[in-house]
Design a protein around this nucleic acid. Structure first.
Length: 419
RNA sequence: GUGGGUGUAGCUCAGUUGGCAGAGCACCGGGUUGUGGCCCCGGUUGUCGAGGGUUCAAUCCCCUUCACUCACCCCA
């Protein structure tokens, strides 16, 4: 049997309702905050990601689905959405109409990691980005909107973690100070961190190996080395969040795995997903647009892990709707022909109708109606049709009434929408 | 990429110190000749994840492999 590819998954009929609910909730909330949807391709030139995410990151180094297409051009299935959004902003000169663009997008991303709980090779993200606004007030607004989404989905078991990563002015100085510190404790670090120390020292702060955590317990933190402007920016973010009553905690160790982030960085974490605690993450990337050849415009955004969100929303609310309005139990060939017409007419009018086209007996049909959660069953046998009627049964009260075939659609419409 | 756990019916799982493969649920049929759920009775379903080895005999032991899963790692 041909099975699906490792790390990929089907979202089955029983789950799609939940996904639709989350997507609709997010889309309508974001639109209320002034965001517009943008839809982007899944395949991009490989260079877009190596230049934006960073050549030395794990994503670019070993997780991308990259291949040469038939003409030999290197293309990559997007591992994240921000790079494409920025590319579209630049390519279509969206900034020329209005430098401020608030965009959101929902779709699949691809990373070739080892699958695990809450981690798939094709996974889904909801992204929201504000391009062209430098003010820290927009940072607060974005985080507020994100927190509000979780509230609307009745997810309460989460916390907002906040940090600032500085800017090109203050980060180099901090990086040097950090490297000086790390070279003093090198021997205590794990093998990975010994490499990171030179390549990407900030990442050492995020290491979960106990020995490393102890070794860097007294390491300098970026937020203590912010320049005046970054310091002021971060202070305003914190104050604004307080004014908006958004609970958050400062996480001096929080860093991002993508190189383009600057200043405000945040993550929504949950305890209910095992090791994959991040349900959403994001931050500022003030230099990215310019470095990809666009105007010098700042930006901030976040991504929500839709698969992970679906798991916690599922755990939080169990209610299941469903059921149909009418099941037509047709017995005999003439009845089935009539049932087809009725079912189409009623479905077209928004009445959830399912007709029977099989040769089952009435008992079997009643069972099926019950399983489908039908609120009414229309019993139509050739016997009834010869008399010009059909029998409408209310499945919860067991009441049965005779309905004339003539004008049956209107009769059913009024009976079924009334009750 | 590394390590642990698990693969037996559609689902959840028993099981055999190596000897015809099991239960519950689900499904189908009957009790009720044309009326669902509850109840009673009966029935169907398996390459025992795949490949190889040991053996008279392997679902069980050994090797390999694949998948799932959890963790490392990374991130959403």
């Amino acid at each position: 049997m041909i099975q699906l590819i490792r790390g990929f998954k089907d979202i089955l009929p029983g789950e799609t309702g939940l996904w639709q609910k989350i997507e609709k909730t997010a889309a309508s909330l974001f639109e209320d905050f002034g965001f517009c949807e943008i839809r982007l391709p899944i395949l991009e030139h490989t260079e877009l990601f190596s230049r934006s995410i960073g050549k030395d990151t794990d994503i670019v180094e070993k997780e991308m689905y990259t291949f040469a297409d038939i003409k030999g051009d290197f293309v990559t299935m997007r591992p994240e959405a921000t790079a494409s959004i920025v590319r579209a902003y630049i390519q279509h000169r969206l900034y020329a109409v209005d430098p401020v663009q608030k965009l959101y997008t929902i779709g699949p991303m691809f990373r070739r990691e080892r699958p695990q709980k809450g981690r798939y090779r094709q996974f889904y993200q909801i992204n929201a980005e504000v391009l062209g606004v430098e003010s820290p007030l927009v940072d607060a607004e974005l985080i507020f909107m994100l927190a509000e989404l979780f509230k609307r989905l009745s997810v309460s078991d989460i916390s907002v973690h906040l940090n600032s990563l500085g800017c090109p002015k203050c980060r180099p100085g901090f990086t040097r100070a950090l490297q000086r510190f790390l070279s003093k404790v090198t021997t205590q670090l794990c093998a990975d961190c010994q490499k990171r120390k030179d390549k990407n020292p900030l990442r050492v702060l995020d290491c979960k190996v106990l020995a490393c955590r102890e070794a860097v317990a007294d390491a300098p933190a970026m937020i203590d080395h912010l320049c005046g402007e970054c310091e002021a920016h971060f202070a305003t973010v914190k104050n604004s969040l307080n004014n908006l009553s958004v609970q958050f905690e400062i996480d001096r160790r929080l860093v991002r795995g993508l190189d383009y982030y600057t200043r405000t960085t945040f993550e929504i974490q949950t305890g209910s997903l095992g090791a994959q605690s991040a349900v959403a993450g994001g931050g500022r990337y003030d230099g990215l647009i310019e470095s990809l050849g666009g105007p010098a415009q700042p930006a901030i955004g976040f991504a929500i892990g839709l698969d992970r969100l679906a798991e916690i929303v599922d755990a939080n609310n169990k209610e299941t709707a469903g059921g149909i309005d009418l099941f037509i139990a047709a017995l005999g060939e003439k009845a089935k022909t009539a049932a087809l017409k009725w079912a189409c007419d009623l479905s077209r009018c928004g009445i959830k109708t399912e007709a029977n086209f099989s040769d089952k007996g009435l008992k079997g049909l009643m069972k099926r109606a019950d399983r489908l959660g039908a609120r009414h069953v229309l019993i139509a046998g050739d016997k009834e049709l010869d008399e010009g009627v059909a029998v409408l049964r209310n499945m919860s009260t067991k009441e049965q009434v005779s309905v004339k075939v003539e004008g049956i659609i209107d009769t059913l419409k009024s009976k079924l929408t009334a009750s």
